[in-house]
Amino acid sequence: MPDEVIDCRGQRCPLPVIAAARRMPEVPVGTVVRVLADDPAAAVDIPAWCRMRGQEFLGSVDGPDGPAYDVRRTH
């Protein structure tokens, strides 16, 4: 389960990626942040951002709140 959730529903890319990038330095290493984002580009761009920034992409889930993407801060 995620440690916290960022709600980016209704936001177009790159805004969900920017929200994740802003939050990541504020949480302790090891924290799992879930990004709720219904823009289809988030499915591509959140994993790509994790790869470029060396953060861990844990996967996507499609729950009652719509598509969600889990990222663990690794450094």
Binding site: C13, P14, V17, A41, A43, V44, D45, P47, A48, W49, M52
Partner: peptide, 11 residues
């Protein structure tokens, strides 16, 4: 195409 490659699509 960008999606299939798994590369950044914005910007």
């Amino acid at each position: 195409v960008l999606e299939a490659m798994g590369v950044l699509s914005h910007g």
